[in-house]
Design a protein around this nucleic acid. Structure first.
Length: 494
RNA sequence: GGCUCCAUCGUCUAGCGGCCUAGGACACCGCCCUCUCAAGGCGGAGACACGGGUUCAAAUCCCGUUGGAGCUACCA
């Protein structure tokens, strides 16, 4: 898609809750498009519904976008030349433009009560007619309108949809989309509380803010003809429209709580990397065209084009996201990974707050062993607990005993291993390995038969990183005392 | 109900008339590596929703059917 250097796009969430993962994807596509074209990304808060406003949602939206790495060039906090960027601070503008539309005959005052509208709707539903406003106030005489206005009768301003004809627009992803005007409703522009509806505010702001490309979710396709009509009424040229396919849940409907995390903050709390989320989200509807799947930010920006965005709905796959997370975790430097793990370890009390230098040093020795085994950061505490705990417990002492061996044989193995490990002064991986492998040979056993009891004795579990590295990191003193404890447990049991 | 969008393995997708006995990735299964678990390597199973056209030739173009989704508010 050829685009000049003056691209301006926006992400325009309404603060009705925490940032949804689907909205995050929309924001991502906007940012990618902006960055790929040297354009500007604007954040605009569409807070024109006083009833649905949720207190800390603006904070959450900003925080979540930043966490993902989607910093806006204009908008809240950073400002810009076409603000304010909160629609609630722009109500005067909308009222003025709505008034202008009334003057030019494109809109009219409507005095119908919500009650009348509701009963109208019910009646239409009953008879199977299409629902919609019956245009009762559309042709009210000016005198009557002025009288009602003067009396302070509550009213809204509605847009006059043309009686016939059709409204067509070119979607950048889907091509021509056509709507017969007669299926369009005389929609409300200005509510009785003086606030604009989305339809009005959106069009005015996109125009006033110089938006060149509207990249938004699929669900807006049906209101796009209304927007086009509005642009025409104002005498403005509409921006390029691109409607992204929706993201579905595994069961086919909208992504909901039932299937797992839905708000961005939940993904963050579970220990997903922003890199992984971005990579996964980008591939939900977009493809580079070759077989590449793993992208970092710069690679995405370099390869992103709008015309490679698909049109069919995509199911959100937590399994694939998990895989991406593992991939990106493995790409991190151990230091970086350690940094990111610290908050999770702190939460579980395995390191102190603030973390000490000693703990950081120790952590950077542990992390390389765990790096290819971690899928979410929140797993780190469980995977690493035995490195931090002074005392470990054996929830199931029988795990100490390898298959087809007796407890007594296991005790013997552990005792001999203990004496070998005790004799190693430089407790290095190499020394541990040669000592233990020597024991395996002299006993004429299989490696696993010797290593597994030691592994369980020292870690309390059957799955750990490589034994020699693990013993080395845990340290000689703790290794020896844990093995003694394990021997004690086995003897006590029999 | 009306309107609109969508339709390739279970999932994300490649494919834009012949390169397709349909390619890749996740998940799944098997083997290898191996002290366990991972990671990694190799291999396997697995899809063009259906019916009509158009064409020498269709997963690719057109129409219909079916299916799914979205919208249908003084919400966005």
């Amino acid at each position: 898609m050829a685009v000049d250097g003056s691209v301006r796009v926006r992400f325009a969430p309404s603060p009705t809750g925490y940032l949804h993962i689907g909205s995050a994807r929309t924001a991502l596509f906007n940012v990618l498009f902006a960055r790929a074209n040297g354009g500007v990304f604007i954040l605009r808060i569409e807070d024109t519904d006083q009833n649905r406003y949720v207190e800390d949602s603006v904070e959450d939206i900003k925080e979540s976008l930043r966490w993902l790495g989607l910093q806006w060039d204009e908008g809240p906090e950073v400002g810009g030349s076409v603000g304010p960027y909160f629609q609630s601070e722009r109500v005067g503008i909308y009222a003025e433009y709505a008034r202008r539309l009334v003057e030019t005959g494109h809109a009219y005052h409507c005095f119908c009560t919500p009650e009348r509208l509701e009963s109208l709707r019910q009646a239409q539903l009953k008879t199977g007619e299409p629902t919609g406003y019956d245009r009762k106030c559309r042709d009210l005489p000016a005198k009557e309108v002025n009288k009602l206005l003067a009396q302070g009768t509550p009213s809204v301003i509605r847009f006059k949809i043309p009686d016939d004809g059709a409204t067509v627009f070119e979607d950048a992803l889907r091509g021509k989309i056509k709507f017969e005007n007669k299926v369009l409703d005389d929609f409300v522009l200005l509510k009785s509380d003086g606030y604009p509806t989305y339809q009005l505010a959106n069009v005015i702001d996109d125009h006033l803010m110089g938006i060149t490309h509207v990249i938004r979710a699929d669900e807006w396709i049906n209101s796009t003809p209304k927007h086009i009509l509005l642009y025409n009424a104002f005498g403005w040229t509409p921006p390029v429209m691109a409607h992204l396919p929706v993201v579905l849940s595994q069961s086919g409907g909208k992504l909901s709580k039932r299937h797992g995390a839905t708000h961005l903050r939940e993904f963050r709390d579970k220990g997903y990397l922003p890199e992984a989320l971005v990579n996964f989200l980008a591939l939900l509807g977009w493809t580079s065209g070759d077989d590449r799947e793993v992208f970092d930010w710069d690679e995405l920006v370099q390869s992103f084009t709008l015309d490679r965005v698909g049109t069919s709905p995509a199911v959100f796959s937590y399994e694939k996201l998990d895989w991406f997370n593992g991939v990106h975790i493995r790409k991190l430097s151990p230091e970086d990974l350690a940094d990111r793990c610290i908050p999770f370890l702190q939460k579980d009390g395995l390191v102190s707050t603030p973390v000490s230098q000693q703990e950081v040093t120790y952590l950077t020795k542990i992390i390389p062993l765990l790096q290819e085994r971690v899928k979410f950061l929140s797993e780190i505490s469980d995977l690493a607990s035995y490195f931090f705990l002074d005392e470990i417990t054996y929830s199931d002492p029988s795990l100490l005993v390898p298959a087809k061996m007796s407890a007594q044989e296991t005790v013997n193995i552990l005792r001999q291993a203990l004496s070998i490990l005790t004799s190693i002064d430089d407790f290095s991986e190499a020394n541990i390995e040669s000592g233990l492998r020597g024991l395996v040979d002299s006993l004429g056993l299989k490696a696993g038969q010797v290593f597994m009891p030691i592994r369980v004795a020292v870690s309390g579990r059957t799955a750990t990183p490589g034994l020699f590295e693990t013993l080395h990191v845990i340290g000689k003193d703790r290794v020896l005392s844990r093995m003694e404890k394990a021997i004690g447990v086995l003897l006590e049991k029999h």
